[in-house]
Design a protein around this nucleic acid. Structure first.
Lengths: 178, 178
DNA sequence: GTGTCTGCAAAACCTTTGCATGATC
DNA sequence: GATCATGCAAAGGTTTTGCAGACAC
């Protein structure tokens, strides 16, 4: 089997046709919340970002576009988007959470390059099935799950074969060395 | 297959016979570091904790025993223990890292109960194999990996069937609601 | 004795919150 | 007009760091 069979290419990101706006709006209405200008702007921006991003990065991109939004509003909006399942958050141990929009996307797992910080996605149905089976056997109700593989990506490994050793121990877990 | 086949019972924790001390000592010596009283005490305490623990909890248990160790030393020592692979750290999104000693233990994955915070461990060789295959196919050098399943454990689910719904959305990701 | 370690307090970091002002329904 | 949202600055929690004194080799 070649890698392409389960590697997910975010460049082929499905065009949602803006359907996420309807989802967001009705979610807000249901809860007596308001579809404000800031929330509209943020939703659009988030769905234009087809990579994983941190709150800080989102804030910077908004600034680049001359759109002002306070840090507090960014965090608060990301929170609401998580609650209505338009967004997922992942912690790769880098200190900040990485977000990605999920509307129209299947669950997938992540590969994280410790050197260049590139995030790749893949899906393996058999792994998913095994997880289901473990939880079912244990009477555990699975609500979410995350599989992360940390290491050195092909490109980085090709450029510098010493990287493997450098990141081999638990050393990279120390914040000061990240 | 019943759950017991791959569920790991930490109560049957292997007696290392104190071999971790030799590992730690030679690791330190190799790097020109010192095997101090504080490091010795902390190593022993860590290997007496057969559950996952946070830095704060370790600090508290040391205080209970009348052993003084500063917060800074605890964090610094945990760091060194991670580097020499006597310890693993896991982030379950609770704000603080959970540590567990790993000497003499196989890699395993975790189930985390969002309600009672209980951590269970399991191992599934086929999942491990699939991960190997994915990374091999992609030319990715895997250095570590973590699979976490979040949900409601059997006991909590039996006591309160409404828990599933309460934790069902991404809401629990918000720190303020944790 | 030299170089490392410890403890303390202060800082760093990401994220959340209180409050007064401003927008939405 | 009542309620919710925003922005700012301040606070929150965990983890890290600077520095002076203490310890290990």
């Amino acid at each position: 089997m070649s890698g392409e069979d389960y590697l997910i290419d975010k460049a082929q990101d499905a065009d949602t046709g803006g359907a996420e706006e309807a989802v967001f709006e009705s979610f807000l209405k249901d809860r007596g919340l308001k579809y404000t200008k800031a929330r509209k702007t943020l939703l659009r921006k988030v769905f234009l970002m087809h990579d994983h991003f941190t709150a800080e990065q989102l804030l910077d991109r908004l600034k680049d576009d001359g759109i002002a939004a306070s840090k507090a509003t960014v965090y608060r909006t990301l929170s609401v988007l998580l609650e209505c399942s338009l967004l997922d958050a992942h912690d790769f141990g880098e200190g900040a959470l990485y977000y990605e929009h999920t509307f129209g996307h299947q669950h997938h797992d992540h590969l994280f390059c410790l050197h260049c910080k590139r995030i790749m996605e893949f899906r393996d149905d058999e792994i998913e099935e095994h997880q289901e089976r473990v939880t079912a056997d244990l009477g555990f109700e699975m609500l979410s799950h995350s599989l992360k593989i940390y290491g050195i990506c092909k490109d980085c490994g090709a450029k510098d074969s010493a990287l493997t050793e450098r990141y081999a121990t638990g050393a990279y877990l120390r914040r000061s060395e990240r």
